[in-house]
């Protein structure tokens, strides 16, 4: 067992743009004034915001975007100016510091922004307008996505490749509902290929946070240059069982996300957590190429975390039916 820590490797800045922030109760408003126009984005905090840690509220909830920067097609012109003026600089201290603290008891990951097109979907445009614009304003989306990709490939990815982190997370929150197979194939796979060329050359592993329903994307994921499938979520939240994923993605490491539906939603129920975990371990036999990850944030009941630890401490490799049966009897 070990710890997984996320630390940044870069800073992002925007030149020639005045950024004005305004706070209201439970709301945070950010305005970008550029020579070609202004854009505003609005975030809404959860109850108890600032009373937790890492910008989250005590419940573990982050601020959510209420209004996106792009509200109508003319906003793309302003966004284009902002993207053209994005700059990245190395910032390795957080990784170096955490590596020292870990003393080998885990890994330090560094995370880059969402994939270029995905950043429009999640951060700049929002899903409703994004899909409408995919059919009505595709050229603009493609043009801006290319600007962003060029920035990443020329500035950001080389910074990540030179960082002290072994694992570079280059994208996140992929779900086949949000990103359908044609979209994934056309816009995401080529980006992963470019990432892999830069990162593999420096001995880094390419990690993507594929935490959604992946059945429809499974074949495409198999073809990708991605090394680590991060936060792979098995049923009941995901739609692809671990054994199928392992047999499809033979050259990849699968980092399995313990579904919060099992670990958190129903409160303390250690026996159910153990039973579920043992079922999953059976699907992982012999246990190679897998990492089991359980989040401790968002108020996961301690009893459930203890139940997971109890099982995992005994889950020696290679996993076999006998090993699992032994754990079942002893816990």
């Amino acid at each position: 067992m070990g710890l997984i820590c996320w630390r940044p490797c870069y800073t992002e800045s925007i030149s020639n743009v005045e950024i004005i922030t305004k706070s209201e109760p439970n709301t945070f408003i950010k305005t970008y004034n550029t020579p070609v126009g202004s854009l505003t984005e609005v975030f809404k905090h959860g109850i108890g915001y600032g009373q937790g840690i890492f910008g989250r509220d005590w419940d573990g909830v982050q601020a959510r975007k209420k209004e996106f920067m792009v509200k109508e097609p003319k906003d793309y012109k302003v966004l284009k100016f902002i993207l053209e003026n994005l700059h990245y600089k190395p910032y390795y201290y957080p990784i170096e510091d955490q590596l020292k603290r870990l003393e080998g008891d885990g890994i330090v990951l560094t995370a880059l922004p969402y994939e270029p097109l995905h950043r429009f979907l999640i951060e700049y445009v929002g899903w409703e307008r994004f899909y409408t614009d995919l059919s009505k304003n595709l050229e603009v989306l493609e043009e801006l996505s290319e600007i962003l990709e060029k920035k990443y490939v020329e500035e950001l990815l080389p910074i990540a490749a030179d960082s002290p982190s072994e694992v570079i997370l280059v994208g996140a929150n992929i779900d086949s509902m949000l990103v359908n197979p044609p979209l994934f194939e056309k816009y995401y796979l080529p980006y992963y290929k470019k990432c892999a060329e830069i990162l593999h050359a420096k001995g880094k592993m390419l990690d993507v946070h594929l935490d959604g329903r992946l059945k429809a994307l499974a074949e495409l994921v198999a073809r990708s240059e991605v090394d680590i499938i991060e936060a792979f979520t098995p049923p009941p939240m995901g739609d692809l069982p671990i054994n199928e994923a392992l047999s499809l993605w033979k050259d990849k490491l699968i980092w399995i996300n313990f579904p919060s539906t099992v670990s958190t939603l129903m409160g303390p129920r250690p026996q159910a957590v153990k039973d579920y975990l043992l079922e999953q371990l059976e699907l992982m036999i012999p246990g190679e190429r897998t990492i089991l990850f359980a989040s401790t944030e968002n108020r996961v009941p301690e009893e459930n975390i203890m139940a997971m630890s109890e099982v995992m401490e005994k889950a020696t490799l290679p996993l076999s039916k006998e090993v699992i049966e032994k754990i079942r009897k002893s816990t």
């Binding site: 899903w127 409703e128 899909y131 409408t132 995919l134 059919s135 086949s176 509902m177 949000l178 359908n180 197979p181 979209l183 059945k215 429809a216």
Partner: peptide
Amino acid sequence: NSEYFLSELIIAGE
């Protein structure tokens, strides 16, 4: 049947 995904549902909705 996984022929349509979210983007298609949005268009159908429109």
